Amino acid sequence: MSTPTVVLVPGACHGAWWYASAVDALTAAGHRALAVTLPGLCERADELDGSTNLASHVADLTDRLRDQDGDLVLVGHSYGGMVTAGVADALPGRVVGLCTVDGFTPEDGDSCWSSVNHAMRDWYIRGAARSGVLVDPMPQFDPRATGHPLASLVQRITLTGAHHDVPVKHYALAANPAWTPTSPFPRIAEKLSADPTWTVHDLPTTHNVLADGPDVLVGLVDRVLADVTG
């Protein structure tokens, strides 16, 4: 098997910059790593239009990766898990590893809105009150964070089921209790723990898994790559 490219998709309001330290560490270790920014966010903010939603995020990344040489390992943090599931579904046979980091693992018809609790829905609505289009970043987010398209958080995803065929699937729960009980992700981790096709980990971090540097995330990616190539 050729060395796969690790594609890192950030969560809501974040861009490729969030993964910079992880990309550097993975590259230094001899891996191929690519972090992406989704349309309408950060340095791609000027691409925001009336059609920017979950489907367009999935389509944008799918189109970008379709011509990428070799196999793919997709890493999605938080909202990024919605996008990586959609891309894995759209590129059957190309994605050999899927790693969701404290994020969503949708089935057909799911959305972020349908997968979270009232506290998170309140952020979506209150955060979008200023523009009606973008959900403003939470106060604790990095200053580089930008508004996130509300449509991408409420739109239901369309999946054929092909994403189930990805041979290696890992889920990592940020086990530090800072988000509890707001976080929807412990429930997702518990559900996947009963699914033999997923390997579930606890990470000793908050939801901001890179706050203390790249080591925890890079170690997780190394485990995924070991399963893929082993």
Score class of each variant (00 low, 15 high):
V216D: 10
S131G: 05
C99Y: 15
D122L: 14
P149V: 09
H170L: 15
L150W: 15
A172S: 05
S183G: 06
W198K: 11
D215H: 13
V96T: 14
G127W: 00
P149C: 10
H163P: 07
V116Q: 01
T199K: 02
G132P: 02
G97Q: 05
P186R: 03
H164N: 12
P184Q: 09
R187I: 10
M120R: 12
L150H: 10
P149F: 15
N208E: 15
D136W: 13
H118C: 08
S152L: 01
D212R: 03
P196H: 13
V133I: 11
Q155M: 06
D136G: 01
M138V: 00
V95Q: 07
D165R: 04
V166Q: 04
A172D: 01
A119D: 13
H163G: 09
T199A: 05
D122G: 00
P167C: 12
A175C: 00
L98K: 03
D102M: 05
A151L: 02
P184D: 01
H164K: 13
V216A: 15
R156P: 09
P177T: 10
W123M: 11
Q155A: 12
P196W: 15
C112S: 12
D195K: 06
P177W: 12
G109E: 05
N176V: 02
W198F: 14
G213P: 04
D215P: 04
L192Q: 04
R126D: 13
D110W: 09
L217M: 14
G147R: 09
K191G: 02
T180D: 15
S114D: 14
P177S: 00
P177Y: 13
V168E: 05
P137K: 06
N176G: 10
R121Q: 03
V101K: 09
S152R: 09
